[in-house]
Design a protein around this nucleic acid. Structure first.
Lengths: 231, 231
DNA sequence: CGCCGGATTGATCAGTTTCAAGGCATGTGG
DNA sequence: CCACATGCCTTGAAACTGATCAATCCGGCG
């Protein structure tokens, strides 16, 4: 899956560069800094597949620039996006031997990656690294548990409110939120149609809770009222 | 939360008894067998809380007899059950310091338990145990990912079909399935009302896909047709 | 300028929920 | 031993939320 992206720039291998725009306590960096683990960088074009469901886990990834969606499909094409991965986020870390979701670049996206085998090797002797693997998987589990509550029990408006607060927390810069994903992606993340997402956002705009600079550039005007709508 | 169950039998401490009716490759047993880790046994009455969301993680549990539901609540009481835990299943293993779901006994239930602190201690030096913690959390994550797809994108009938196949796989004995949980629990697991669950089951019964011995005693007559309904 | 993908908005439809009634076991007290 | 209460389940009818179908609209770009 790395070789099929022939038009993408060749991966540049370099000796453990620390990420710039990434939280301080960064398990990925800790892992990548361990002896024997080589971090590379790689770019994907819009909508390009990074790995597919069922494929063997060759690498573990960290978003550097851009955004990634991971999802599952039903036979007839219905899609459930499990998570959006933004700069600094680690994805593709599966404990088993194959990926259980498909990962795609949402827009032009750059990732760092480490070989899973070298990770395994280090984890086999380094308890700190083994602990980090557990912590990262546990973080994904926590998100999934919260998201099950959303999918199973929240109303459309509550889902959208939760989504906006999550994105605000994760990617707000200077009071402005620049959503990398389209309405369909949001719908497939929230278990809604794109029309329902659009209607909910319009309603929030009408109520003055948010303002659109453009369809994907949003300023939250009243986080408290949004939080009230969130159940 | 252990001390408040005053009418339950006192925990009996005993030196690492292997579980009888439990899979061979049992990480919990591996963990419980490690030096310094003491396994106890404990029983809970129907609907008794085992731990609450937000409480510190004192123990990790394994169901011996009975069944456990773990769930989250919204402010107004809407409930999402994340998983049912049946004999042999491990639950309550959170990487953080507090539980993120509430656990309750569904009926009269017996569990084995080990102190989380002793687990931590062993994991700090034993890579095998650290790896097992990761594997168990990853298994929960896999289930949560599958369940997000169900909650977000499957129809009522598809949800019920998936549920029946899951329970058939996990607790069918002699072709018969004895569900430990009520219709409301099933609904709160599938993101449906209990009436919708009941209607779907009746419909499956009408179509001859299953037969009720009683409301909770079910025989699947045609797993293939059920799998077809599952999407 | 005109195209195109994405977004919005409107009208109708359908699936699920809600509300309500009744049935069927189980257990308890008279 | 029967009457009755209780909890759980089923079934029906009406209401409602969100989906579907369809028509623009808007902004960016060739």
């Amino acid at each position: 899956m790395l070789t099929q992206t022939i038009t993408a720039p060749a991966a540049k291998v370099f000796p453990v560069p620390r990420a710039q725009n990434v939280p301080a306590a960064d398990e990925f960096s800790v892992i990548a800094t361990c002896a024997g683990v080589i971090a590379s960088e790689f770019s994907y074009r819009k909508d390009e597949e990074i790995y597919g469901e069922g494929e063997p886990c060759e690498y573990v990834y960290q978003v550097v620039r851009g955004a990634v969606r991971t999802y599952k499909l039903l036979n007839d094409g219905r899609r459930q996006i499990g998570a959006f991965h933004l700069p600094g986020d680690v994805f593709g870390l599966d404990a088993g031997s194959t990926h259980r979701l498909t990962a795609e670049a949402i827009g032009e996206t750059t990732v760092r990656l480490v070989k899973r085998r070298s990770l395994e090797a280090v984890a086999g002797s380094n308890v700190q690294v083994a602990h980090n693997l557990w912590t990262m998987t546990a973080r994904d589990l926590r998100h999934a548990e919260d998201h099950m509550l959303l999918l199973g029990r929240k109303t459309a408006m509550e889902k959208v409110a939760t989504f906006l607060l999550e994105m605000d927390r994760r990617l707000a810069k200077a009071g402005m939120m620049a959503l990398p994903m389209c309405r369909r992606d949001i719908g497939d993340y929230l278990g809604l149609t794109l029309e329902t997402v659009s209607r909910a956002l319009s309603q929030l705009s009408d109520q003055g809770i948010l303002v659109f600079s453009s369809a994907r550039q949003i300023v939250l005007r009243n986080r408290q009222r949004l939080a009230d709508l969130d159940a």
